Simulated scan of single mutants.
Amino acid sequence: MQRVPARAVGPAPYTVAVAETESTEKTPTEPTKAQLSAARGFVAEHGTPSKAVVERIGRLGARVVLVGADGAMGDVVVPNAETGAALVEAIDALESAEWDSDTVNATVIGAEHRRTMAGPRARA
Rank of each mutant, 00 (worst) to 15 (best):
M1D: 11
M1Y: 11
M1L: 09
M1R: 11
Q2I: 14
R3M: 11
R3L: 13
R3N: 05
V4G: 12
A6K: 11
A6R: 14
A8M: 06
V9K: 12
G10M: 13
P11N: 10
P13N: 02
P13G: 05
P13D: 00
Y14N: 05
T15Y: 02
V16Q: 04
V16F: 09
V16S: 08
A19L: 10
A19G: 08
A19D: 05
E20S: 14
E20I: 12
E20P: 00
T21D: 06
T21Y: 03
E22I: 10
T24R: 08
E25Y: 04
E25I: 15
T27F: 07
P28R: 13
E30N: 09
E30Y: 02
P31E: 12
P31L: 13
P31F: 12
P31A: 15
T32V: 10
T32Q: 03
T32E: 05
K33A: 15
K33G: 13
Q35H: 04
L36H: 03
S37I: 08
A38V: 14
R40M: 06
A44K: 15
H46K: 09
G47F: 00
G47W: 00
G47N: 01
T48P: 04
P49L: 11
P49G: 14
S50K: 05
K51H: 12
K51Y: 12
A52K: 03
A52M: 05
V53F: 01
V54K: 00
E55G: 10
R56D: 12
G58A: 15
G58D: 05
G58R: 05
G58Q: 04
R59L: 09
G61T: 13
A62V: 11
R63N: 14
R63D: 14
V65Q: 09
V65I: 15
L66P: 02
L66C: 06
G68H: 01
A69M: 02
D70Q: 08
G71W: 00
G71A: 02
A72P: 05
D75I: 05
V76E: 06
V77G: 01
V77P: 01
V78M: 02
A81P: 00
T83R: 06
T83P: 03
G84Y: 03
A85H: 07
A85C: 02
A85L: 09
A86W: 00
V88S: 11
E89L: 06
A90C: 06
A90N: 07
I91S: 04
I91R: 10
D92S: 13
D92M: 02
A93I: 03
A93C: 03
L94N: 04
L94H: 10
E95S: 14
S96R: 13
S96P: 09
S96I: 01
A97S: 11
E98Y: 08
E98G: 14
S101R: 09
T103H: 04
A106G: 12
A106Y: 03
T107Q: 11
V108D: 13
V108A: 15
I109T: 13
I109F: 01
I109Y: 02
I109Q: 05
G110I: 07
G110V: 12
A111M: 07
H113K: 09
R114N: 03
R114L: 12
R115W: 04
R115P: 01
A118F: 09
P120I: 15
R121Y: 11
R121L: 15
A122P: 08
A122R: 14
A124L: 10
